[in-house]
Nucleic acid binder design. Sequence first.
DNA 1: GGCGGACGTGACGGAATCGTTGCAGCCATG
DNA 2: CATGGCTGCAACGATTCCGTCACGTCCGCC
Lengths: 228, 228
Amino acid sequence: MQPRILVVEDEPAIQELIALNLEQAGQLPVLADSAEQALERIQEELPDLVLLDWMLPGQSGLELARRLRGDARTKRLPIIMLTARGDEEDKLRGLETGADDYITKPFSVKELQARIKAVLRRRAPEITDDAVEYHGLRLDPAAHRVTGKGKELAMGPTEFRLLHFFMTHTERVYSRTQLLDQVWGDHVFIEERTVDVHIRRLRAALSPSGHEAFIHTIRGSGYRFSRA
Amino acid sequence: MQPRILVVEDEPAIQELIALNLEQAGQLPVLADSAEQALERIQEELPDLVLLDWMLPGQSGLELARRLRGDARTKRLPIIMLTARGDEEDKLRGLETGADDYITKPFSVKELQARIKAVLRRRAPEITDDAVEYHGLRLDPAAHRVTGKGKELAMGPTEFRLLHFFMTHTERVYSRTQLLDQVWGDHVFIEERTVDVHIRRLRAALSPSGHEAFIHTIRGSGYRFSRA
DNA sequence: GGCGGACGTGACGGAATCGTTGCAGCCATG
DNA sequence: CATGGCTGCAACGATTCCGTCACGTCCGCC
């Protein structure tokens, strides 16, 4: 899966440079040029990593990092900070606050990629292809197989990806828009109601083992995958 | 949610300047040009922050701040004071009285915004999506779930938002108008008595765990959410 | 104790949301 | 080219929810 990387940077030139490099490396850049906008994007796009410039207009990067660490939903969101060269004080405070790594400007493309890969590898339980299990339901991405209560459950590719996302993101509500972004991919033009149809197909596919009950409709908000 | 910011300033020119800047930053300015008017506006509008000029006709800003700190309902209302340049004495007394921050005139728009954001972030437990707990009742916005005494409590979207507001604003009376503004959103045209109906529905939804008793009717004033 | 206003409660029409179905288009496969 | 599986869409029906009203009840005040 293509990792989403939020780039928080107020200088357009650097922002574009980084975005280009990320795209070439098969990653999906999400852009923000202020801390406020960053918070919005995080809510909307659910990035896997944040590249955070330390010097921002208004709210500083330090404060944003602190806030992300304070929120339960973003507590484990990896942060790589971009600091001016030799700004040792920022570096220290940054690591204290909870940044996972730092890069001093100017930096090379290779170095950036190396650190991104390292951080993503360190904490990315959800992007892996490991088999997932949840209360008697088992999904194996490598074998493309789903089993529940010993029975093999057949479904289409889209239902499979949808279930995979749900099983790695349980106990939380996702809107139709978020599901489209996460399961179908960004920038697709698909009717939101189509999600409903695939939810129905997934429910039908899970019914032989009774696990269809794990898919909860949250009226007005979206869907949640959880036991009971 | 759009934060409301009360601007207490007697000079029309400065007042307008600040109001304009706040609007551009996505905030909702509420205006008052005297301490007396400020008290009224606070009661009506429930601002999230007060920008307070230190030099006011009649009752001074200092006295207003002291009064706000003395009242239980406004004890935790953030205050940023505006002082003349170099007026160190005012600065000290202001911080002693309980102002959260200060800005010396003349100030830049950026600085103003930075301090506003900082103060709002410091005390804004209500804007987050973190789970809330109150005497055995638990509400999780991310999972969109309410549990009391181990039982899951089902309710409609409006009841959920209403309960969320109550659980983040306990121990205080809110009028029907205030509840409409805060839970339904500003500028809605809804009968005040409709609040009663949703209060009833929320009580019914909470009854399985007995937490309906937390909703108190304050005859002639509104409702309060609190234990006993 | 009576009176007036405020509140609780049940019901109802309309609107919004969601489940379900059938279908047409697409692609791969043989 | 025929077939079959899969996808996205539109449409319909069912359900839930919302805001309002009417009526009954309760409370405080004189």
